[in-house]
Design a protein around this nucleic acid. Structure first.
Length: 345
DNA sequence: AAGGCGGGGCC
DNA sequence: GGCCCAGCCTT
C-alpha cells in the first residue's frame, strides 16, 4: 500500500500525530506554530543548509548572541560575521546572509515567498520554510530529508527534484503547513535516516513501499558524486601560532576567510616555484620548512607544505580572525614543534 | 543540467 | 575510505 491519493489523509494525520508527540524542541522553534520569529527561522535555515542540526544548533546560539536582530547583523562588519561562522563551512552562506540583512534592514523582512526568494542565499527550500513556519503559508519544503522520506514512501529509487516537490505538495497539510514541514524533516532526521532507518518507530511504515520491500535503505539510490580533485599549495608562516601574517582569501574557495599567505602549485610547476612567488610577493625570506598537512573537503584534497620565514607585512592576532580548518592544521605544526622543542608533550 | 562550495559524524 | 547533511549560486 503506497501513499496514493486515497491514503494521503491517513499518512498526513499519522505524521502530524507523531510530530505532536515526538517532534524535536529546537531553539529556533519559538512562538506559536505557523507564527515563528522570522529572523530566527531565517538564520537557522541558512545555517542548516547542508549542515546537520546538532552542529547547526551550536552555531545558531553563537550567531544569535552576536547578532540578536537583523539590525545588529546589518550593522556588523563582514569580518565579525565570518568569525561567528568560523568552522561551519560554506562561507558564502555567511556572506549572503550579511548582504541580505543590509538589503532588508530598511523596510523589514519580506512577507512573501517571492520576496524571500529574491534575497541572496535564499532559494526555494529556504523561502518555503520561512513562509510556512512564520506566516502559515501552504508551501511544501523540499530538502534532503523530504527527498528520502518521499522516495521511500513511494518506492522511488531515482526521485527527481520536480517529482519530490509534487509528492510533497500532495502530502502537505494545508491546515498546518509549518508543522507538516517540520514533521517530515524531523522524521527524516531521526527515524527515516539514510543508513539504518528505524522503521519500527515510524508512524507511516504501514504505507511505506521501501519498508515493504525489506530494503528501505536502498531508497533513494546514492547520488553520483564528482571525484575529489587534488591540489598542492605552499604557505609561509611569518610569526607564530598566536600572531602571524594573515591574508584575506579571495574568490569562491574559502573566500572572505583569513589564512597564511598561500600560493597554489600550478600544473607542471614545482613547489619551489610557488614558494618563490610567495616570498617575492610578501618581501620575506624563508628560514625553514615546518612540515606538510593534508585536508580533505567534499570535493578537494589539499596538500599544503608550510615554511617558516622572516619579514613581510604586519601580523594579526590569529584568535581574532576567521580561519578555515586547513590553516588551523598548518598552525598546529608550529604548536607541535614548540611542544617538542620544550619537551612539554 | 552540472559543478563548486566546508566540515564533521558515521559507517 | 565513502556517504550524508533543513541548498544555493554560477556557468
Amino acid at each position: 500500500m503506497t501513499p496514493s491519493s486515497p491514503h494521503l489523509p491517513a499518512v498526513r494525520a499519522a505524521l502530524l500525530a507523531w510530530f505532536d508527540r515526538s517532534g524535536r524542541a529546537l531553539p529556533w522553534r519559538v512562538g506559536p506554530e505557523g507564527r515563528r520569529d522570522p529572523y530566527r527561522v531565517w538564520v537557522s535555515e541558512v545555517l542548516l543548509q547542508q549542515t546537520q542540526v546538532v552542529r547547526g544548533q551550536v552555531y545558531f546560539e553563537r550567531f544569535m548572541t552576536a547578532f540578536p536582530t537583523v539590525q545588529a547583523l546589518a550593522a556588523a562588519p563582514i569580518e565579525a560575521v565570518l568569525k561567528a561562522w568560523e568552522g561551519c563551512g560554506y562561507y558564502a552562506r555567511a556572506r549572503n546572509l550579511h548582504r541580505a540583512a543590509g538589503k532588508v534592514v530598511g523596510e523589514g523582512l519580506p512577507t512573501t515567498y517571492e520576496g524571500w526568494l529574491a534575497l541572496p542565499g535564499v532559494g526555494p527550500y529556504t523561502a518555503a520554510a520561512v513562509v510556512s513556519l512564520t506566516l502559515g503559508e501552504a508551501r511544501a519544503v523540499n530538502d534532503g530529508n523530504v527527498r528520502r522520506v518521499l522516495a521511500r514512501l513511494h518506492g522511488e529509487k531515482q526521485p527527481t527534484d520536480p517529482w519530490v516537490q509534487a509528492r510533497a505538495d500532495d502530502l502537505l497539510d494545508p491546515e498546518r503547513p509549518g508543522a507538516f514541514n517540520e514533521a517530515v524533516m524531523d522524521l527524516g532526521a531521526t527515524v527515516c535516516t539514510p543508513k539504518v532507518p528505524k522503521c519500527p518507530d515510524c508512524p507511516v511504515s504501514l504505507w511505506c513501499a521501501a519498508f515493504q520491500s525489506g530494503q528501505p535503505a536502498a531508497y533513494p539510490a546514492p547520488k553520483v558524486r564528482s571525484a575529489v580533485r587534488e591540489m598542492r599549495a605552499v604557505a609561509l608562516l611569518l610569526g607564530d601560532a598566536r600572531e602571524a601574517v594573515l591574508e584575506r582569501r579571495e574568490g569562491t574557495l574559502l573566500g572572505g576567510l583569513m589564512g597564511l599567505p598561500t600560493e597554489v602549485v600550478d600544473e607542471g610547476e614545482t613547489p619551489d616555484q610557488a614558494l618563490a612567488r610567495l616570498v617575492t610577493r610578501l618581501g620575506a625570506r624563508v628560514t625553514g620548512e615546518l612540515g606538510t598537512v593534508t585536508h580533505t573537503m567534499t570535493h578537494r584534497h589539499v596538500t599544503l607544505t608550510v615554511f617558516t620565514g622572516v619579514g613581510g607585512p604586519g601580523r594579526s592576532q590569529v584568535a581574532d580572525e576567521p580561519l578555515p580548518r586547513l590553516d588551523h592544521k598548518a598552525l598546529e605544526l608550529w604548536t607541535r614543534r614548540e611542544a617538542s622543542l620544550f619537551g612539554t608533550h
